[in-house]
């Protein structure tokens, strides 16, 4: 029965070893690979050579979106569309708009941050090509799981597996799809 390779999986349990391995895999030129960890491991993203996330810019756009809308709504509704004299107060003033400006800029930032996070991580994706692998499931428990995808240019079922073993990975094996 012919089966297509999905990728190679290896397990690590020592945070120092996974950090060292991440650097070496990156230096070896692999690009379509990942490390799945139960909790964020400090500096592992840098070791893997991941570029800084653009999420902060998305969040900042949310802040601008929120505050612009807040000022625009308050000014347009009270000073333009239906001016009402209430207690002789000005129809619009920057001072009294501050609480709503502030709250809506926070709200905009929060929503953009979460939507941006989901977009960048492609969440929700209720499927993963490794999902039935027993090693892969340990990644949410206590194991650092390295996956190197078969569609990486440097991938070769035997050599990649051997490479992972030399880095100290345990239980290295090829994952295939029928």
């Amino acid at each position: 029965m012919s089966s297509t390779p999905v990728g190679v999986i290896g397990e690590f349990t020592d945070p120092n070893a996974i950090s060292a391995a991440a650097k070496k895999i990156d230096q070896a030129g692999y690009r379509k690979w990942d490390i799945h960890t139960p909790y964020p491991v400090h500096g592992l993203d840098k070791d893997m050579g991941i570029k800084r996330s653009i999420l902060t810019y998305i969040s900042f756009a949310g802040l601008l979106f929120g505050i612009t809308n807040a000022i625009a709504i308050q000014w347009w509704t009270s000073a333009v569309d239906y001016p009402l004299n209430i207690g002789g107060k000005p129809l619009f003033a920057f001072e009294f708009s501050v609480p709503v400006d502030f709250e809506l800029s926070i709200l905009g930032t929060a929503i953009f941050t979460v939507v941006g996070l989901f977009g960048l991580c492609k969440l929700p994706t209720w499927y993963n090509k490794y999902q039935d692998d027993e090693s892969f499931k340990k990644a949410t428990d206590d194991t650092f799981v390295v996956t190197i995808d078969a569609d990486d240019d440097r991938f070769s079922a035997e050599q990649t597996a051997a490479f992972l073993t030399t880095l100290g990975a345990a239980n290295v094996h090829l994952v295939t799809a029928p």
């Binding site: 991440a22 996330s53 209720w126 993963n128």
Partner: peptide, 23 residues
């Protein structure tokens, strides 16, 4: 949502968490 613990995701996630804490 299909979270796998990917370090590429944790990277965004940690920034998002920090931003949410910050605001």
């Amino acid at each position: 949502l299909g979270w796998t613990g990917s370090t590429r995701h944790w990277h965004h996630y940690e920034i998002a968490y920090m931003l949410l804490a910050g605001i």
